[in-house]
Design a protein around this nucleic acid. Structure first.
Lengths: 167, 167
DNA sequence: ATGCCACTTCAAGTCGACTTGAGGTCAAGC
DNA sequence: GCTTGACCTCAAGTCGACTTGAAGTGGCAT
């Protein structure tokens, strides 16, 4: 039969069982019953998990993901909102591109201090551009350690910076 | 004269004073002295803060940023690492693009469930691609509500709800 | 000289997404 | 029929980046 036991789902998806329980509690996935105490899931949960992972990778919170898509992958809220999210992502992408170019340049440029390099400053300006107009510090990706062995990034939790309200 | 008082820096940069103190403690910026108790900074701190904001926007932790650049904006660690970070960012960007396209499509596609739409699934596959090879749950951006008025992201209200930590 | 009050320090709290731990349950294998 | 071990629940802990609160300090205007 098609029913998957939680450990099966964990194994196939790479998502720890504890996280699966957490997702279920949050309403992101649902189990179709129990075998004894054990949760059992339909195989489609694997697709749902992929969608969740994708949303998380794009920086959405679990709550946002739950609001964007039902467990069936059907958009729950209006399409305009999805389009807006897409637009947000687009702005995000442009900032990341500037950051990437800045880093790339920093790795190659011989200038002693990048702050004095006009090219670098230009990237900086581009990247900062978004943060300025809209006035909102958003947070983005923690790209993971590349294979360089330089892994400084031990990633963990995202965070939304609280809106700053200083008088 | 050029020295800026902390409140000045906060005002000009949009970064709360408490965060500035935090950054100083972390070694991301430095004050050049005190006037009474008040920290004073050189104007260049504004550039440094822009760099920090940029790094944060790209998803790096404060520690990583501190390791990548000294307070002077000079790369502290080897250039290969910076290039590697750039490559990471590049992979990230591609995932985000897939997510964006997926959302864009979800907003337009009439299919009842996106899980059944081949196009959507393809975006999903692309976006999920990176997550698989590296096997590390990376986290990315939390783009904020765009200006569409669709803001689902409740930013923290200024007043804290009553603490409920009963145990 | 006095008061104001924006700053200071330091400890503790917050938020999200989980993880960890203690104590409990149960289908299965011997 | 008893042990085993993977699962269960629920509370509490963790991590990063700050924020908040209490209590203190000192420049500046009166």
């Amino acid at each position: 039969m098609k029913a998957l036991d939680i450990s099966e789902v964990a194994k196939r998806s790479g998502v720890p069982a504890s996280a699966l329980r957490h997702y279920e509690e949050k309403g992101l996935i649902e189990s179709i019953g129990r075998r004894g105490l054990r949760r059992i899931f339909e195989p489609v949960v694997l697709d749902q998990l992929a969608l969740v992972a994708l949303g998380r990778a794009a920086g959405f919170s679990l709550d946002e993901i739950a609001r964007m898509f039902g467990v069936d992958g059907r958009p729950k809220i209006d399409r305009a909102m999805l389009a807006a999210k897409a637009a947000d992502l687009d702005a995000t992408i442009r900032k990341l591109e500037a950051m990437r170019d800045g880093l790339r340049h920093a790795a190659a440029c011989p200038a002693p201090s990048h702050m004095e390099c006009p090219k670098f400053r230009r990237y900086l300006r581009v990247a900062a551009a978004g943060a300025h107009g809209g006035r909102k510090r958003d947070r983005l990706a923690a790209p993971f350690s590349s294979g360089t062995g330089n892994s400084l990034s031990h990633d963990r939790s995202p965070r939304r910076p609280p809106v700053d309200r200083r008088r």
